[in-house]
Deep mutational scan, measured.
Amino acid sequence: DNLVIALHSYEPSHDGDLGFEKGEQLRILEQSGEWWKAQSLTTGQEGFIPFNFVAKA
Results as ranks from 00 to 15, higher is better:
L7P: 05
Q45V: 09
L26V: 03
H14A: 11
G33I: 02
T42N: 09
Y10A: 02
W35C: 11
L26W: 00
T43L: 02
F51K: 15
D17Q: 15
D15M: 10
S9C: 08
V4E: 01
R27F: 10
Q39G: 03
F48Y: 14
F53P: 02
I5F: 09
L18P: 01
K56S: 13
S40I: 06
V4R: 03
E24P: 00
E24M: 02
Q45K: 15
L7T: 08
V4A: 08
I28R: 00
E11L: 13
Y10I: 04
L29T: 06
D1S: 10
E34C: 15
S40W: 03
K22A: 10
G44A: 06
T42V: 13
K37W: 15
Q31L: 07
L3F: 11
G19L: 05
Q39C: 09
G23R: 01
P50R: 06
T43S: 10
K22S: 06
L41V: 10
V54N: 04
L18H: 02
V54D: 02
E46N: 07
A6I: 04
F48K: 08
W36I: 10
G33K: 04
W35Y: 10
W35P: 03
T42M: 11
Y10T: 02
D15Y: 12
A38I: 07
L7Y: 04
L18N: 01
G44V: 02
A57Y: 15
L3A: 02
S13F: 12
P12Q: 07
E11T: 14
T43R: 02
Q31D: 11
P12K: 08
S9E: 05
G19I: 04
D1G: 11
L18C: 05
K22Y: 06
F20E: 01
F53E: 05
K22W: 04
E21R: 14
L18K: 04
G16T: 09
G19D: 02
F48W: 15
G16M: 08
T43A: 01
F20V: 06
E34I: 14
P12I: 06
A6H: 04
F51W: 14
D1E: 13
W36P: 04
L7F: 06
L7Q: 06
G47D: 01
L7D: 02
S40M: 02
Y10V: 05
E46F: 13
L3I: 14
D15W: 12
D1C: 15
L3N: 04
E34Y: 15
A57I: 15
E30S: 11
A55R: 09
H14L: 08
E46L: 11
I5P: 00
F48E: 02
L26T: 01
P50G: 02
Q45G: 07
F51T: 06
L7M: 08
H8I: 12
L7G: 02
W36V: 10
I49Y: 02
F48P: 00
E34W: 12
D15S: 12
L26Q: 01
I5R: 04
K37E: 03
F48Q: 06
K22L: 07
N2G: 09
K37I: 11
G19A: 11
E30T: 09
S32F: 13
A38D: 00
Y10K: 07
G23V: 00
E46I: 15
A6R: 01
I5A: 03
G19Y: 06
G47Q: 00
W36T: 07
K56D: 11
K56C: 13
A55G: 11
A57F: 14
A55T: 14
D17A: 14
K56F: 15
H8Q: 14
F53Q: 06
R27V: 11
S13N: 10
K37M: 12
G44H: 07
P12L: 03
P12G: 09
A55I: 14
L3K: 05
W35L: 09
L3G: 02
T42H: 10
G19M: 07
D1K: 08
H8K: 14
L41Y: 05
G16F: 10
L3V: 13
K22P: 03
Q25M: 15
N52S: 11
I5V: 10
F53G: 04
D15C: 12
G47A: 01
A38R: 02
E46K: 10
G44M: 09
S32I: 14
H8G: 05
Q31F: 13
G44S: 05
P12R: 06
G33L: 02
P50W: 08
A38S: 00
D15V: 13
L3P: 02
Q39D: 01
G44D: 04
E30C: 13
F51V: 08
N52D: 12
E30D: 11
V4I: 05
W36C: 10
G16D: 09
P50Q: 05
L18A: 01
S40G: 01
S13K: 15
F53A: 10
W35R: 14
S40N: 11
G16Y: 09
D1I: 11
Y10P: 01
A6C: 05
H8A: 11
I28D: 03
E34R: 13
G47H: 01
